[in-house]
């Protein structure tokens, strides 16, 4: 059985392919997976636990943005924010243009107490995305990403933009 079918059998709704929310697209987040999983957590917590049990296998099978984001959401809802951060960073590596990935990461960081970094992303997401791509960063460069975000925040503050 493929991942999509397995997911649907447990969650009761489709695992749609991740949709990119480009900054230049001037649209809201379309991807409702995080929200639907949040609702599921309260209505059927056992289903969330089943998904949590499955996600490790799915991550072995597919290393794509959709599965990384799904993993991030499952861990976020389970309040394992370190794991959530890890998978949101992987989603960003796969698709840095997707603003949703950055917002997800920022809120995981907020829960981890990385408040400056979280705010740095939320308030300067356009610069962060631009320089992340320009510097060709990836999921393994978290310390570089951190320095980048903090530097952007400081520059913006000092220029009072």
């Amino acid at each position: 059985m493929d991942i999509c079918n397995e997911f649907k059998n447990i969650a009761g709704f489709d695992l749609s392919p991740r949709q990119t929310n480009y900054i230049s697209g001037y649209i809201e987040r379309i991807d409702s997976l995080f929200y639907r999983l949040s609702i599921l957590y309260f209505s059927s917590p056992e289903k969330l636990r089943m998904l949590q049990g499955k996600i490790k296998n799915w991550l072995k099978e597919e290393q794509i943005e959709t599965i990384f984001s799904l993993a991030g959401y499952i861990y976020y809802i389970a309040e394992d924010f370190s794991q959530a951060k890890k998978y949101f960073l992987k989603s960003i590596s796969r698709n840095p243009d997707n603003l949703d990935n950055w917002i997800d990461l920022a809120f995981a960081l907020r829960h981890l107490g990385e408040y400056k970094l979280s705010n740095g992303i939320l308030f300067n997401h356009d610069y962060v995305i631009y320089y992340y791509k320009y510097l060709k960063l990836n999921a393994n460069n978290f310390s570089k990403l951190k320095s980048l975000v903090l530097e952007i925040s400081e520059k913006i503050l000092s220029n009072n933009i």
């Binding site: 995080f34 999983l37 949040s38 609702i39 309260f42 917002i103 809120f107 939320l122």
Partner: peptide, 23 residues
């Protein structure tokens, strides 16, 4: 604090927290 972000406009876009935090 961690769950308490309130929807705000940043760079002409509403930035909101995940639904799970709201709940």
């Amino acid at each position: 604090f961690r769950d308490g972000w309130y929807p705000l406009i940043i760079k002409h876009r509403v930035i909101d927290r995940p639904g799970i935090d709201i709940f």
